[in-house]
Nucleic acid binder design. Sequence first.
DNA 1: ACAATATAGTCAGTATGCTGATCATCAGTA
DNA 2: TACTGATGATCAGCATACTGACTATATTGT
Lengths: 153, 153
Amino acid sequence: MTDVNTMPGHLIRRYHQASVAIFHARVAELGYDLTPVQYAALAKIEAQPGIDQVTLAGLIAYDRTTIGGVVDRLVQKTYLVREVSATDRRARVLKLTELGVTTLHRLAPAVEEAQQTMLSGLEPGEQAEFVRLLQKATAGVNQMSRAPLKETD
Amino acid sequence: MTDVNTMPGHLIRRYHQASVAIFHARVAELGYDLTPVQYAALAKIEAQPGIDQVTLAGLIAYDRTTIGGVVDRLVQKTYLVREVSATDRRARVLKLTELGVTTLHRLAPAVEEAQQTMLSGLEPGEQAEFVRLLQKATAGVNQMSRAPLKETD
DNA sequence: ACAATATAGTCAGTATGCTGATCATCAGTA
DNA sequence: TACTGATGATCAGCATACTGACTATATTGT
């Protein structure tokens, strides 16, 4: 009898679910309403101002269709500015606003705490090993996703 | 500089993404179009015929709102029958159809293979340890999800 | 220069998940 | 019995993700 609750795929789904809930709770405590995906996008755009949407998607392993909506919402919240690229009129260039930068820095500690909370079921000694294996396992299946990571970072 | 690509939350999102893609690919090879969530629901209903939606949701850690739509689609595909409970007119009782049972059994090997593929980035020795840690970590954050697992199984 | 191809982005449609509200029904109690 | 609260299910609305198709613009090859 193969119980779904012992299958990696099902465990991953549940863990992801909880991880999003934890992130949301921490961020809400500070009075913000940013999703993990939105946060990751902001963080990457800060690191590489002027990045276009497809490159951004590659750097954080998003689907290029999804990124459009994410950027829309961030622009709407005035964390971002999206402009047509001067060198390629197909491309949209992304930059953080001042509010975007402030928000990102203000949320950083809460995001770090959320990561710790996600690992709180493990012994301190197990946590590092788990993250190592998670990185390795994720790297192993990277190409099987529609939105693989492309680290030209 | 804390890169999101080293954060557990971000890794688990990516891993989940790939895991769904792998599942979908394997199932599509057999000519089916079932999602991981739909498969898990079918598997649990087979194990407990006549289960109601809330109990089902608890057993596989779904949100009770989500389960409605999942069941809708499974009913539409004629894998399931949903009837008003004889003992509690609020509740909907779920049972597999013959097609549902056949499909479930036909997909089982592909689902097993998908689980193996998800772990393929790890050494054989690491896989068991990873699954153990994943189970432990997931159990540790179970209560922080809106849809915690309730195993009265 | 022109045709073929590739790329950036969007749109429509579908499936999970969530929040918060509502409705119907059930169970316990005054 | 009538009231109160709890519970099963649904609905509206939003945010990720996916598929597949489409437009506009660049690039490449002849």
